[in-house]
Design a protein around this nucleic acid. Structure first.
Lengths: 354, 354
DNA sequence: ACATCAATGCTCATATTGAGCATTAAATAC
DNA sequence: GTATTTAATGCTCAATATGAGCATTGATGT
């Protein structure tokens, strides 16, 4: 192989827990990696410097990427990871402003980790924050999020109409329609990454502004390639406030990848149970699935599904803490893994009629 | 971030085409990376030095990983990639013998690429080879592959019984049962990677022998961690001959990842069409799906599925080349992407009763 | 004309899914 | 204590989707 310039491997973890029907991720606060001249444009988010927990991969010390990740997550946040899954490797140029400033190219590998509700405690600089604070258009549990019709839809259509020619406009319109389900199409809860990337390209999330400002500060050629319309109009500024809290670097993109992945995986692998205590009621189980998938499910049908598929079995005990009739407690039946090819708690595709 | 020792990023591509109902991948021949002392134990495969096309990621020249990949694949093999998808990033210590010999740690990112049948031509050192030559137990189109009952099943059970204590034995038996469907469980066509890794751990593929021999040659501590039983018995040697052709380094693992991924994706995204010409008959379409998923499908039901889901539309023309009644030619209806959340050609879970 | 090979059309039983009604068992309000 | 509220749980019914197979059609080859 030819000699290449220095690259470093960074590991980022999306560490998820669900408490009180709210999916949360572990974040850390970082001293601004965003230069001040870039911060200025961010308005409401100017002083928001949250990031995913991250650390370098140290080849000398760790036999595998997984082990490296577990090791520094435990050191940095005090959380011991159970279920861990690799998400994606990102290496786009300019994902990190320090690279523009002459640093090495950093390749970062994103991971998803699920921890039990009980372990959901912060420590040191780590802080649990609501997942949907970063991706507000993804939570449909209370119906179609208003931000979509009030802000995202009109702004995206405006962006589409702004394309340089007809074919580009059609492509943009198709992407908007596929991902935000604006005509007869349904809402595909798994296309989280595609939606975030669309908003990024259209300049409707704070990261677009920030990265553009960074590029400009270094007067690199990337400034010329700035994809969004130049007009710094009021509606766009309003959009930046409404499309959720940004994260440093490309961490919100990694977060979107993680949400999409976990939603897809729910269907065919019993991963929810990684987030629940050993024994739980069916409603607790349902709430966790709903929290992650972002939609509400029909209670009776949900019970029928998990029981008929023999994903759970009663422990014999009852939960008497809650309001109504005491709920039977269940535990996960690990044996299903052996019995059926692809057990999962199928979240049905949400149709528009709903 | 702390200073870490040198790492290099390598990109590996599983480039797939389907011709004559056979899925094929592009391979290259490499001068032996396996030291001669390791080759000696490989019997039938001693002189087999195939590898996936691979190249370094050059941060100076390429803006993204994708672009880097496309660039050297085109240079090296003359194939221009269309659909490309990142698979997984591997960085286990000792995946590369050159590292043991004092070279840098190499992190490799696996990619899956699908190309049209028509472009399936070799060039230079590149060569198209049948996918199932490397993973023979994965092709169930002619029924349960004999190698499973003749070799894999007994050898895996023997390996399980060899565990150091009862709980380890149970865990091994469970894994065997889940992945090779030995009791009432079905065959989950997507667990390709898990099956390969099981065979690797049990010492039933040539790579286990080779990697062990390599470790031994460097008398590293890894030799002590050799997972398989020491007995170099005739049945094991026979197994090594029967469990398919090895690839250099961990490329067969990457290949297994790719097959599992493509099988999973078939269900919910219309990726098959990337492998077909613009216009095709429904039988051609079915054959490609069968070739990839490794199972045979019910013809009438398959047609009903693709037509009812409006994945295809007739071109108006007919294929008169074949034997029987001329088949209507169809094309992919790109609009489905916009209309329905997760269109795919669902391969039903194969039940054991069959 | 007839046999053969596929393509295509159609039916039927079974399973899965989406929606809702009804009943039961506890806690809380009066 | 009795009524009201909150959930859990049991069941039904219609609409689809899936798995298997029978029947017919339209070419080619003898």
């Amino acid at each position: 192989m030819s000699d290449t310039s220095a690259t470093e491997i960074g590991l980022n973890a999306v560490i998820v827990a669900v408490t009180a029907e709210t999916p949360r991720i572990l974040t850390v606060r970082r001293e601004a990696m965003t230069p001040p001249d870039a911060s200025a444009v961010l308005g409401r988010w100017a002083d928001s410097h949250y990031a995913l927990p991250f650390g370098p991969f140290e080849p000398e010390q760790h036999r595998t990427l997984d082990l490296g990740l577990r090791s520094w997550v435990e050191e940095q946040t005090g959380v011991t990871l159970g279920y861990v899954e690799q998400l994606y490797t990102f290496a786009d140029r300019h994902r990190d402003p320090r690279e523009l400033a002459g640093g090495p190219r950093i390749v970062s590998i994103g991971y998803l980790a699920l921890v039990h509700e009980a372990e959901a405690h912060g420590e040191g600089a780590a802080e649990w924050r609501t997942w949907y604070e970063f991706l507000p258009w993804e939570d449909w549990r209370k119906g179609r999020p208003p931000v979509i019709d009030a802000i995202i839809r009109p702004q995206l259509l405006h962006w589409a109409s702004d394309a340089k020619n007809d074919s580009a406009r059609l492509r943009r319109e198709e992407r908007v329609s596929i991902n935000f389900g604006l005509d007869d199409a349904g809402w595909d809860s798994e296309r989280v990454l595609e939606r975030y990337e669309l908003l990024y390209e259209a300049g409707l999330v704070a990261e677009t502004e920030r990265d553009f400002a960074v590029s400009r500060a270094h007067s690199s050629s990337a400034a010329a390639a700035h994809p969004i319309s130049e007009q710094d109009d009021a509606p766009r500024r309003e959009a930046l406030e409404a499309t959720g809290r940004p994260l440093e670097l490309d961490h919100r993109r990694i977060l979107a990848t993680a949400l999409g992945r976990i939603r897809g995986k729910l269907r065919y692998r019993p991963v929810v149970f990684e987030l629940l205590p050993d024994s739980f009621t069916l409603l607790q189980l349902q709430r966790v699935v709903e929290a992650l998938s972002g939609v509400v499910l029909h209670k009776q049908n949900f019970r029928r599904l998990v029981i008929n598929n023999r994903l759970v079995e009663p422990t014999g005990a009852y939960d008497t803490q809650q309001r109504g009739r005491p709920a039977k407690l269940f535990r996960f039946r690990r044996e299903v893994l052996r019995e059926r090819p692809a057990p999962g708690v199928g979240v049905p595709a949400l149709r528009m009629a709903g």
